[in-house]
Simulated assay, not measured.
Amino acid sequence: MATAFATIEAAPTTSPSVTSDAANDNGGCWTTDPRTVRLLGSCAANPPKGEWIKERFGWSGAEWFAYTGYRAEALEAIRSEYGERAHRAYMAHGEPAYDQFNAWCRSPSVRDAIDAALPMEA
């Protein structure tokens, strides 16, 4: 199992504000969550399917690759859960909790995490 995804910059483990609010401590980067580690291990062993998504708007457009299936959806739900906690903490505590929210904003996307977990091709 590849472990490169766990080396991505981790978020602060706790917010500077000390409260009993569970949303104030998101426990680090979402890629270190045990559920994520298991799902990414599964992706490394059996890569998920994906599709190219194309959007057009006016004279411009965008095109990107996205992984599909239950594992990609579960990973996105975990990432979103961490983001919601960080955002709630930032809204509740303001500037002292900003580093935690900013770290989540800069955390890897689901696609980046899956790509990092896949074995390197020779």
Rank of each mutant, 00 (worst) to 15 (best):
residue 5 F to K: 04
residue 97 A to H: 03
residue 80 S to R: 14
residue 117 A to T: 01
residue 3 T to E: 13
residue 58 G to D: 09
residue 60 S to M: 09
residue 29 C to N: 14
residue 74 A to W: 02
residue 79 R to H: 09
residue 56 R to A: 12
residue 37 V to E: 01
residue 107 S to D: 06
residue 51 E to Y: 08
residue 6 A to D: 06
residue 80 S to M: 12
residue 96 P to S: 09
residue 98 Y to L: 14
residue 88 R to W: 08
residue 15 S to I: 07
residue 3 T to N: 10
residue 75 L to E: 02
residue 116 A to K: 11
residue 106 R to W: 09
residue 96 P to C: 10
residue 106 R to A: 13
residue 3 T to L: 14
residue 36 T to L: 00
residue 87 H to S: 11
residue 68 T to G: 03
residue 5 F to Y: 15
residue 62 A to Q: 12
residue 76 E to M: 10
residue 39 L to I: 14
residue 54 K to D: 07
residue 116 A to R: 11
residue 8 I to V: 14
residue 99 D to M: 06
residue 6 A to H: 03
residue 27 G to Q: 13
residue 11 A to H: 06
residue 102 N to M: 07
residue 42 S to C: 01
residue 110 V to N: 03
residue 16 P to K: 09
residue 82 Y to I: 00
residue 5 F to C: 03
residue 105 C to N: 13
residue 94 G to A: 06
residue 117 A to K: 00
residue 10 A to P: 07
residue 8 I to E: 11
residue 77 A to S: 12
residue 33 D to S: 07
residue 58 G to Y: 05
residue 120 M to W: 00
residue 106 R to Y: 07
residue 28 G to P: 11
residue 25 D to P: 00
residue 108 P to H: 02
residue 24 N to I: 02
residue 34 P to N: 02
residue 113 A to L: 06
residue 107 S to Y: 06
residue 61 G to R: 04
residue 15 S to D: 15
residue 86 A to S: 04
residue 108 P to S: 00
residue 66 A to H: 02
residue 72 A to V: 04
residue 19 T to W: 10
residue 17 S to T: 15
residue 103 A to C: 09
residue 52 W to N: 10
residue 22 A to W: 11
residue 35 R to T: 11
residue 91 M to F: 02
residue 1 M to Y: 05
residue 44 A to P: 01
residue 111 R to I: 06
residue 68 T to P: 05
residue 46 N to I: 01
residue 11 A to C: 15
residue 101 F to R: 14
residue 84 E to K: 05
residue 13 T to M: 12
residue 69 G to Q: 06
residue 31 T to R: 11
residue 29 C to A: 15
residue 77 A to E: 08
residue 78 I to C: 04
residue 31 T to M: 15
residue 36 T to H: 01
residue 64 W to H: 13
residue 112 D to R: 14
residue 19 T to F: 10
residue 27 G to T: 10
residue 79 R to G: 04
residue 39 L to N: 03
residue 63 E to Q: 14
residue 106 R to S: 12
residue 60 S to V: 08
residue 109 S to A: 01
residue 19 T to S: 15
residue 81 E to K: 03
residue 40 L to A: 05
residue 80 S to H: 12
residue 51 E to R: 15
residue 70 Y to H: 05
residue 8 I to P: 00
residue 75 L to P: 00
residue 13 T to Y: 10
residue 114 I to M: 02
residue 51 E to T: 14
residue 90 Y to Q: 07
residue 49 K to Q: 13
residue 16 P to Y: 05
residue 116 A to I: 00
residue 21 D to Y: 06
residue 113 A to I: 02
residue 66 A to K: 08
residue 8 I to Y: 10
residue 97 A to T: 05
residue 69 G to N: 04
residue 18 V to Y: 05
residue 99 D to R: 12
residue 19 T to Y: 08
residue 95 E to T: 13
residue 118 L to V: 02
residue 30 W to F: 03
residue 88 R to I: 11
residue 5 F to A: 04
residue 22 A to V: 12
residue 13 T to K: 11
residue 118 L to R: 07
residue 25 D to F: 12
residue 62 A to F: 07
residue 103 A to E: 06
residue 116 A to T: 00
residue 79 R to N: 06
residue 115 D to F: 05
residue 26 N to I: 15
residue 58 G to F: 06
